[in-house]
Amino acid sequence: MAQMVKKKRRAERTDLWVHIFFILFGAICLIPFITVISASFSTEADLAEYGFSILPREWDFTAYAYLFENPSVIIKAYVVTIFITAVGTFLGVLFMSMVAYSISNRNFVLRKALNWYLFFPTLFSGGLTSSYIVNTRYLGLTDSIWALILPGLIGVFSVFMMRTFFQQIPDSLFEAAKMDGASEYMIYFKIAIPLSKPVLATVAFATALGKWNSWYSAMLYIRDPDKVPLQYLLQKMMKNIEYLLSEMEHVPGGVDLSQIPGENLRMAMLVVAIGPMMCFFPFFQKYFVKGMTIGSVKG
């Protein structure tokens, strides 16, 4: 008996090598981030002399001083990103759940046809070039904020995920509402939506993450510096740091003029751009995990 208890306890404990594996893997995941943060707190001279490192040689806030002395570039980019994320997520979840509700309904005569209509673009697409010509020439999306929101808003697998979820709601609930004379709008809004919060949250976070991280549409359609979202600003800065410096007229007080920031400013910009999201994200991890495991998303 004692032996069995002992055995059981051993089985419950995690082996040491497993912990070591994950600690090493975690280090590989985190060290690059730490390097970036450290670089943003280094002096340009140290970076030029000694390169990047895990800890700064000498703590220095010049890069951040530059950023916060000239906040308009970042604030503008943040406003654009927050706008496209908020509006994109709201409209995306609304439109996707609406169409998902309609195709989850067995009484809907166009159900099959609509399923295929939604799915077909997964099979065949017109490609980048014709999308680009259509959007710029015929839909007038050049320099429009809607170019960052509307294309790709309807994710077919998210729609199918919601549809599957709606279909699992007991029919009796819908029937009862119907008996009471509720319209389809009412049923969608008062029954389907409130009962589907987990799947709505999963889709909402996935959409929000996608919009927050989006840069591709901006690269194609945005030329106006006032409509540049964060990720696209970062991308432009990767290509040339002067882009940001040229937008910054004010030199912060008490800064040695020979120490014009370069790499450290670039990295500080990255920290400011992704930092808040990184702190935010662990709290919503479960929704992303759920999205991976929620099940059937068939066409």
């Binding site: 609406m98 309609s102 166009l110 999308s131 259509v134 839909l139 319209s183 389809e184």
Partner: peptide, 28 residues
């Protein structure tokens, strides 16, 4: 009536796909 309502619920997604997925297909 139910079917019309369901169709109207589907419309925003249908229009977005028509503009951004189906229209470019003709662009080939």
């Amino acid at each position: 009536k139910d079917n019309l309502q369901l169709l109207s619920l589907a419309m925003p997604a249908v229009i977005l796909l028509a503009l951004f997925s189906y229209l470019p297909m003709f662009g080939i």
